[in-house]
Design a protein around this nucleic acid. Structure first.
Lengths: 231, 231, 231, 231
DNA sequence: ACTTTCGGGACACCCCGTTTCT
DNA sequence: AGAAACGGGGTGTCCCGAAAGT
């Protein structure tokens, strides 16, 4: 995470007029930058405490802004929460979803996905924001719930695609139901995350890894079969 | 789950001498009954909204009691929440955990457990209270979190025992790690529950059932082997 | 002004059950008493600062109550302001309006009224609450304005009555327009109060007293005439 | 009233060399004109609502300027309010104070002053700005209060002077206390204005006019006396 | 010269959890 | 057990004034 808060309030004169083609750094208006900073600093708070329990006072403290400074950028707590979730979900999926698993065959890539999810901690402190939001917003916050649903769906779609690629590549059995595999992947990993949190131990994730590995073995095209095919 | 309901707050002195001469006094005094009623009526509210978001006003409305009536039986919201969780967890484990799966061999009993969990809805509306509480109380409510951890541990122990029985019965492979199986069971089921809730569809549970069925096949002693053993 | 704030929070048991016929002291419920205390403590603040400029924080500080404690007794600031005005106006009229001027003929009573108004300071610090409210609520607060109008009308009516009594008593000329006299009384006194406040000097009131005395001389039945009448 | 409008804030350096070669430069530069316009448009708002209740937003709406546009000309709300009061007081005194009463003897001029005050409405909507400011700024705004005091003093001085002229002219009794007369004049008129506003009726002013007329009769040198003097 | 954006801060009102008094 | 009372924290609005942009 870049440090935004130290960039605030730096008079524009001291900076290069129009930062040229330096990476992504599209020069943001000051307000836009503040808005982004708020989102990033609020993310762990919402993630840890949930929508209702997280108060604006906590966000004010975290950002160093006063209420007026926060409400200038967001119509209300709800809108802030939504933006925060979008940010958190994106970060979470980038870090633990599938990103970086582009090498090897589909089976390897799936295995890499599991490993990444288990080894890489949530980029937003407080656990998986998708799970947290899904449970937290179960009732009474349909907007957030919908966002969580979409995030899960996106994740699932990515896994599905890899499974389908595996089928095309001939490393995964034809009959495999990709949707089913993806769902079980997510369910088991997220369930393990939940256990991990209450048990204060990562054992659950290790067990999940082993058994999801077994699942992959089950749907894999058996070595003998595969060779025969090739020949 | 221990019986907590007869512990506290029975200011015996001020009561009309009604309770018979039986030390056990199965007939609950009125206050005790009210206390239990409050717990039962509050359970779905806490389960749906979480500890923070659930307000006393909602409980007042549900029970028809005034605030004073509630506070007569519970020292504070926290204590009420704990009792509610104990009640909810007990009900949930009784209904979906393992109860009723006493017939057949260990494999069958495990399969029955999965089926029951998937087919029987949560006895407390609002989803699985264990999961909800685990996520909801992640931060800022260590007491509830501990209770959730214990409930999960109890559930896990029960599954472990069945797996171990299966090993003794010779229907589950010796090398099977019972703890690992139990953890994956719970993780997958709870993860599927979470998905179910955001997706508004029970598909995730179905997929989980299939996967866990496959898991059981993997750890089962193969038919041929088993027969040979017997002979 | 009785000291209310030290009566708060004194457990009822320590007091005589039903305080008998001791003066006015109808035993108030605790809340009723608090409400009254708030009104009395808020009165000088509203009187000094006006409706808009007076903030709830000031009232909280003055009463020692928290926001919740204040809002339990008043629906909103507006309602509090109205009650405060009613209280202030009553106090002001009791202290400076006409009360206590029951002896002598009507002319003497009118003179006494002037003297009282000038000698007795406003019982609510911050000047005459009628004038303050009339000016302050000129625009944008019709409810308060109406109350102020009514208070002025009541005051005027009292003066009118005395003038009419004077006519009946034969000490004030028949042709005297009571309404006119009353209006000028009030106008001159209140105008002098306003000057007094900006000038930080009571001279204006003294001048007003002299000239209102002259007004009374003008409308008085001349001594000779009066004697002749009598004879 | 001093001319304040050409004093400040004309950052002469930064301006295009436009102002001709006339040291007096009767043509106001654009900024100066805007400043004056703001004052004029803000005057009725401040007069109606008072210093605290009047918000910059209202002034923005009235002037069509943005906040920055206002702040270019005034350091803060306080300074604007002061300038507005100076403007309003000047206008009020010009229109209703004494202006235009230059004909006839002192008694006639005094009578004319009363008539003018009563017949001519406040040039600034919202009632007499002197009275409004005096009451409004009673506490918490010493600067405005001082300005109001000075405005009242100026008004009083003018009346005093006419009374003194009357004494010199021999139409007003020697013993007359000019200060006292002036004070009562102002007090009665302003008090009547206050009543007028709450009563939504001009009766109070009419009554005040009659009374003040009687006051003039009292201090006038009696016709017989006057003739004798002259002879 | 004026607009737009930005942020600090106070304010009103609401509602919750708890205590106290019937 | 009900009802009243109160402390306290929450949200969202508004306003003032500064700063940046045009």
């Amino acid at each position: 995470v870049r440090n935004f808060s130290t960039r605030l309030y730096c008079s524009a004169k001291g900076m290069p007029e129009k930062s040229g083609a330096d990476g992504m750094s599209e020069t943001l208006r000051k307000g836009e930058q503040t808005r982004q900073t708020i989102i990033e600093l609020a993310a762990p708070i919402f993630n840890r405490r949930g929508f209702t329990a997280c108060s604006l006072a906590e966000i004010m403290e975290a950002t160093g802004l006063e209420k007026g400074g926060v409400y200038r950028h967001f119509a209300n707590k709800e809108e802030l929460a939504e933006e925060v979730f979008r940010y958190s979900a994106r970060r979470a999926l980038e870090a633990r979803g599938i990103g970086g698993a582009e090498e090897g065959d589909a089976l390897m890539r799936l295995r890499k996905m599991i490993t990444r999810f288990i080894d890489v901690p949530s980029p937003i402190p407080g656990g998986c924001p998708l799970l947290n939001t899904a449970i937290d917003s179960d009732d009474g916050n349909p907007a957030l719930r919908k966002l969580a649903a979409r995030a899960f769906a996106a994740w699932k779609r990515r896994i599905c695609r890899v499974v389908e690629q595996g089928i095309e590549e001939g490393v995964i059995q034809h009959a495999t139901n990709a949707e089913s595999v993806a769902t079980v992947f997510i369910a088991t990993l997220e369930g393990a995350v939940a256990l991990t949190r209450v048990e204060c131990s990562r054992d659950a994730l290790k067990h999940a890894q082993i058994f999801l590995g077994g699942l992959l073995d089950q749907i894999a095209v058996k070595q003998k079969t595969r060779k025969r095919r090739v020949s």
